[in-house]
């Protein structure tokens, strides 16, 4: 065990964990942030996607060591059930979730794109979202939700 400080959604948390613990486990089991999901554990489905220094990463394959000074953001940072952020609201409006397991990862990957490129074209959206999979098959609605927001642009959320 060793002491590791994680900067998550704007606050610092010092945890006593193994350095090779996947970031996903720390987020869910130690910080109670259950948005990101464990899907395949192999970086092939994207259900665990969070933002690390504004870039989407698979948190199941990202060890907690080396997180000093790096900024982690999860879906919880974008809004709440009462006050969803623009992208979350668009996912609700388009009913982009069936079982919902992939959605936190989908939203975070899309968030990274929209922060970097507020009005991405169709090709850019498709290429950017390719790593994340949805087993229920709601991809068309997920893409529609992203298009909704890309019309207005999304504000950088802390």
């Amino acid at each position: 065990m060793t002491t590791t400080t994680l900067h998550v959604n704007g606050s610092a948390h010092t945890l006593d964990i193994d350095p090779d613990m996947p970031l996903l486990y720390a987020l869910r089991n130690h910080l109670g942030l259950n948005g990101a999901k464990y899907g395949c554990g192999l970086g092939q489905c994207g259900a665990c996607t969070v933002l690390l220094d504004d870039k989407p990463v698979f948190s199941c394959l990202t060890p907690c060591s080396g997180m000093e000074g790096r900024k982690i953001r999860t879906v919880e940072s974008l809004g709440s059930a009462e006050q969803p952020g623009p992208l979350q609201q668009a996912f609700i409006d388009t009913q982009a979730a069936q079982c919902g397991y992939c959605i936190a990862g989908m939203i975070m990957r899309a968030q990274a794109l929209l922060e970097q490129e507020p009005h991405p074209g169709e090709e850019a959206i498709l290429a950017h979202m390719a790593p994340n999979l949805c087993r229920c098959g709601t991809h068309l609605r997920i893409l529609e939700a992203i298009r909704h927001v890309s019309k207005d642009g999304v504000k950088h959320a802390g």
């Binding site: 193994d18 350095p19 090779d20 613990m21 996947p22 554990g41 192999l42 970086g43 394959l61 990202t62 060890p63 060591s65 080396g66």
Partner: peptide, 10 residues
């Protein structure tokens, strides 16, 4: 530790 956390799954 990095190999275990990031690579070993595959």
């Amino acid at each position: 530790a990095l190999f275990q956390g990031s690579c070993a799954g595959c």
